[in-house]
Every structure is written in C-alpha cells, then in structure tokens.
C-alpha cells in the first residue's frame, strides 16, 4: 500500500522536514498576525470614520478573497509583473500575515466590544483611572477571551500553509509528491501511503493545539 517507501533512505525525515517548512511559515505568520491584529483591533474600536472605513474594506477583502488568490496576486503579480524579486516564502509570509492580521483584528474588536459597559462604569465608580481600569479590569478579561481564539488562529494558519506548494514552495505535500514520483517504478502504490501519512501528520500538528484551545476556552468560560 505504499508505506514501505517511507522506510527507504531518508524519506521519512524528508517528509518531517517538509512539515517543518510549513510549520515555520505558519508560526512566523501567526506571530506577526497576532501582534498586528491586536493593534488593528484596538484601532477599530476608536470610532474614527476614516479608520473604520479603511478596516471595513480591508476585512471584507480578506473575508471574501481566497488566500490562494491573494498568494497569486502577491507572488505572480508583484514578482513577475512588477519585477520585484520576492521569494515564494516571502510572498507566503506577506499573504498569511495580511490575512491573519485581519482575522485577529476582528476577534480583538469583538472581544473589546463584548465587554459590558457596566464593567467600565463600575470600575470608574470605584475610583480607578482609565489606565487602571484597562490594566486590572478590562485587560485580563480580554486576554482570557483572546488566548483560545489566537491559538485557534494558529491551527488555521497551519492548515492554510498547505497552499504554498501551489506557488512552488517545497513543503510536506510537495516532498510527498517528489517521493511518490521518484519511486513510481518500485512502489507504484506509494501515493496511498504517503498521502495518508501526510494527512495524519497535519492532524498530529493541529489536533493538540485545538485541544489546548478548547481546554482553555472551557477553563475560562464562566
């Protein structure tokens, strides 16, 4: 069924390293997204018409444009048409950060607006300053809401990274294809085993993170 190919040479290691490439891209993008998205999210609650309008367009673009299309625009559009020399990996990082920041911004905005007004009022009435209110009352509540959601964003990022093979980055799916191709004669059925293993590898990467997010969400629910 094609599993034997994995034991040949360093094939198993190559697959894992391919997964490593995907994970590296997703983690860097996730970190950038969480940082930028938090800033954007706070900006969105400022109720300045120009800022609001800008972010509405930005968010709606991300909401309806497939990441794949964005990847093509940045990679082929910028590199080929404008002569800017972007590596595929840089293009991927730009696109995933652009996408992830929007997602994160919307989550942060939702969390900020989800804090009942009475929370602000009761801290003010206790004599806390605005800064103290944010620091001791609002901030901790936001962080508890945001951590599980940010962790979920990381799993989504990992799953989305599988797209980068379509712009030629050699990650786990591409490595899988190469292995299948190289062993076409000796193991004609390798595609079954290899793709099943990759499927499970992705699952092994994402599932624990999803469980952690679910656990934290439940723990901090109340």
């Amino acid at each position: 069924m094609g599993f034997e190919v994995l034991l040949k040479g360093n094939n198993a290691l190559r697959l894992l390293m391919g997964l490593g490439v995907a994970l590296r891209i997703s983690l860097i993008s996730a970190v950038i997204s969480i940082a930028l998205g938090t800033v954007f999210g706070v900006l969105m609650t400022l109720k300045k018409p120009a800022i609001t309008a800008f972010f509405r367009i930005y968010l709606e673009t991300v909401r309806i444009m497939p990441q794949m299309v964005l990847l093509f625009i940045v990679y082929f559009g910028a590199t080929k048409a404008r002569g800017i020399n972007l590596t595929a990996e840089t293009a991927a990082l730009i696109v995933f950060s652009f996408w992830g920041s929007a997602e994160m911004a919307d989550l942060v905005r939702g969390a900020l607006q989800g804090i009942p007004k009475i929370q602000y009022e009761s801290s003010t009435s206790l004599g806390l300053s605005t800064m103290q209110t944010d620091r001791y009352v609002i901030g901790p509540q936001i962080i508890r809401r945001m951590i599980p959601l940010s962790i979920n964003l990381i799993t989504r990022m990992i799953k989305t990274t599988s797209l980068v093979m379509m712009i030629g980055i050699v990650e786990v799916l591409k490595v899988g294809q190469q292995i299948i191709e190289a062993n076409r004669k000796v193991s004609p059925n390798a595609a079954f085993g290899i793709f099943l293993v990759i499927f499970l590898l992705y699952f092994a990467a994402c599932w624990p993170i999803s469980l952690l997010a679910k656990y934290l969400e439940r723990k901090w629910e109340n």
């Binding site: 069924m1 094609g2 799993t155 990992i158 799953k159 989305t160 990274t161 599988s162 797209l163 093979m165 799916l173 899988g176 299948i180 004609p188 059925n189 390798a190 595609a191 079954f192 085993g193 290899i194 793709f195 099943l196 990759i198 499927f199 992705y202 699952f203 994402c206 599932w207 999803s210």
Partner: peptide, 23 residues
C-alpha cells in the same frame, strides 16, 4: 469532526484523488 477540522482540504483532496485509486 476532529480529523477533518484539523487537516487542510488540499491534503484531504490529495488523499481522495491520488491515494484512493491505489487501493
């Protein structure tokens, strides 16, 4: 639910389209 929520579509499609014919 856990399997399909935690894997990318591309990966699922590769398995369905390239993997399954082999069995």
């Amino acid at each position: 639910v856990e399997l399909f929520r935690n894997t990318p579509l591309l990966c699922q499609l590769f398995f369905l389209y390239f993997g399954l014919p082999k069995i």
